[in-house]
Amino acid sequence: MTRELWSIDARDPRKVWAALVPALEGTGAAILPHPASPSGLPETVPENVAVVVETSGSTGRPKRVMLSAAALKASATASDELLGGSGHWLLAVPAHYIAGINVLARSHFSATVPVMMKPTGFSAETFVAAVAELKAERRFTSLVPVQLARLLESEDAVAALASFARILVGGQSTPIALLAAARARGLAVTTTYGSSETSGGCVWDGTPLPTAQLRLVDDRIELAGPMLAEGYLDDPRRSAFTFREHDGIRWYRTDDIGEIVDGVLRVRGRADDMIISGGVKVSLAEVETVVRTLPGQSAAVVVAVPHPEWGEAPIVITTSAIELDALRGAVAAQLSAAAAPARVMLIDEIPMLAAGKPDRLALASLVLK
């Protein structure tokens, strides 16, 4: 049995909301929210699929993740348990992000109507105006790190953020300094880890949601639970490789490596970000984390380049000049000599994807020119 699939213009979150509710209730077509007209979209999907989420494709070709209403409800229910019950949600991220879909789905399952910001023109002023529309005392929102950083620059926005019972921050790694600054202002910030394949964040502050499971297989993070996706649309081979059953449990094999310290997950970076430099394993994500703690380097990006002596080496791409020896010393002191960047590349502007993440493919190409 199949179900009709509609592409919905995600530039207007009200259209996504209007189509998502019947999709979740099983009375309407499945939807693929998208900021443009996606190509190659089939007319139907399996009957139990309610939402298809297209990934950003930051490290390769985009994937179309199929989510059931049951998976989104399981995510919402587990989230409510940690949040201490339902509340009024503010949609501040684009409605084609899994985080945005989650805000809408949680609102539906708690029988509330979210306040919806348009994703274009996000600013402290528009955020404060949207917060004023929230009616309930218990209020929640999801942000990406760059939004949180922008809001912390405004006293009015900080006051608005302080009215939230919980602020979820995810979509990418949250800089330690940014998280500390938000919490120092008394903000109830929780970092989330997950993906479209897990109906969004299913690990909060390093701990799985009540119905989620976490394990490491050769340092690779794997996740399980009722919030897992059905697989990838029209891609059975990738689905079979990524979603695997073991001892009766279906696991999602992520592209990330991590470690568990005192019962808390620490994401070390992407598996394909691990390089061998001079015979030593180096995580580009860990190098980037250290670099971003240095003055003026909060937006710096670290990529790998071939090196005639070491095989591969990290280099730092930044818009703010920094002395190489000081940079190498800081990284070597916290990680290892092999992790010390080989050079610094200064550019005018970091290219970004629509999802608000650095375009690492474009940066890697730029370095190799």
Rank of each mutant, 00 (worst) to 15 (best):
E4P: 10
D9L: 05
R14Q: 14
K15E: 13
V16H: 13
A23M: 09
A30Q: 15
L32F: 11
G40P: 14
E47F: 05
V49Q: 05
V51R: 10
V53D: 03
S56N: 00
S58M: 01
R61Y: 05
S68R: 14
T77K: 06
D80C: 08
L83E: 08
G87T: 09
L90D: 15
Y97F: 14
G100L: 05
G100T: 11
A105N: 09
S110E: 07
T112G: 11
M116V: 13
S123M: 00
F127R: 05
V128H: 05
V131G: 06
K135D: 05
K135T: 14
R138E: 06
F140A: 00
T141F: 02
V144M: 06
D156V: 07
V158T: 08
V158F: 00
A159D: 02
A160M: 08
A160N: 08
T174C: 14
A184R: 11
R185C: 03
A188R: 15
A188T: 12
G194T: 02
S195W: 11
E197V: 06
C202G: 11
W204F: 01
T207Q: 10
P210T: 15
P210K: 15
A212W: 08
L214M: 08
R215V: 11
V217C: 01
V217D: 09
D218V: 03
G225D: 13
Y232P: 00
L233T: 15
L233F: 15
D235Y: 12
D235M: 12
R238P: 00
R244S: 03
R250A: 00
W251V: 12
D255W: 04
G258R: 03
I260M: 11
V261Q: 07
L265M: 04
V267Q: 01
R268M: 01
G269Y: 04
A271D: 11
D272M: 14
I276Q: 12
G278S: 08
V280M: 13
V282E: 11
Q297N: 04
S298F: 03
V302R: 01
E312S: 13
E323P: 04
D325V: 08
A326P: 00
A326Y: 04
R328S: 09
A332L: 05
A333W: 12
A333K: 14
R343N: 01
V344C: 04
V344I: 10
I347S: 07
L353H: 06
S365F: 00
L366T: 09
